[in-house]
Design a binder for these strands. Structure first.
Lengths: 166, 166
DNA sequence: CGCTCCGTGTTGAGAGCTCAACTACTTGTT
DNA sequence: AACAAGTAGTTGAGCTCTCAACACGGAGCG
């Protein structure tokens, strides 16, 4: 609480929109996470990491950069990469010119795992998101999401952002 | 994968909408979770449970019903209620007429904790969601969320739903 | 009754996340 | 050069969630 005025509570309509939105997005994430765990043996967060790595020319990225791209904390990424290193999907090596740095590189096995996981995941995304919405809704969703991200960026870091890069 | 046809990949626009939407909703949840942990010492999932309990006349609900209302598995709720029982926010007691059942009841301390947590949370929701969107976007978001939930309900349980109630 | 099946709730193990603390290196300043 | 401050990444503890297994009571049927 920053102000000392009376709280402006949500009215019924706002409540309804709010709860529906939150439960829809949570359920969607949970659904996709379960699909990937069952079919590919990886949580969706790990999948995202593999995707980001696969989209670079070298299939490799510096840890800090990778964390940004994945909306992840450094800590979380570090744990995740450690776990995926055990699975043989990723390898870590030093970076030239900065002895602090570390680079995560997608291994061939990791690329293969991603190649096998991708079709099921994309199909699930298409069927649960894109086929559920009209073109107009899709356009609106893009704008809404962008507005929310902008809002969070503008004020998020100041008070309840991740302790990092603020 | 259910079909054997070629995967229909996401085009650039779809990718962009998809990633923006997911990262916006994840960040929003994380933001609100952090706010509640810092200011009220509870994760947002626990807050939701307290809210549901507080909205009933008796401030009490059967576990299974409470789980439904919170979009939670029975297991998760059981762990959560156990934790909140330790905090003194909730108490559990038997239910009459069905000796399997259990009822979670909001204690006075729990109600008080909720009363103190609510203003900060609601203010945060208003500022990060409602004030970020136009009226038109809000209306659209309500419909989009409803469509997504309907979609998930219709096909979710069949393949990757929670192992329960399917 | 005795049987099976279903529903309710709990439990424990293990996975992944957050937070804070820490090491190690780099950059900027004097 | 030397020191302070900042940056990169890791680590461990503690917490919450998931999953599978379990215990126990209820319901239906022979």
């Amino acid at each position: 609480m920053t102000d000392h005025s009376e709280t402006r509570w949500l009215d019924d309509r706002e409540q309804q929109i709010w709860r529906t939105f939150m439960s829809a997005s949570i359920e969607l994430q949970a659904h996709l996470d379960r699909q990937l765990r069952v079919d590919a043996g990886m949580p969706v967060a790990y999948y995202e990491i593999l995707v980001m790595l696969s989209e670079t020319p070298e299939r490799a990225l510096r840890m800090s950069r990778l964390a940004e791209l994945c909306n992840s904390s450094r800590s979380r990424l570090s744990h995740a990469v450690a776990a995926m290193e055990k699975s043989g999907w990723v390898s870590r090596c030093a970076i030239e010119g900065d002895r602090r740095g570390a680079v995560a590189r997608l291994t061939d096995a990791g690329y293969e795992a991603l190649r096998q996981a991708a079709p099921g995941h994309v199909t699930e995304v298409r069927e649960t998101l894109f086929e559920a919405l009209t073109e107009e809704q899709l356009r609106a969703l893009g704008e809404i999401a962008a507005a929310l991200k902008a809002r969070l960026k503008e004020r998020g870091c100041s008070r309840y952002g991740r302790g990092e890069n603020c």
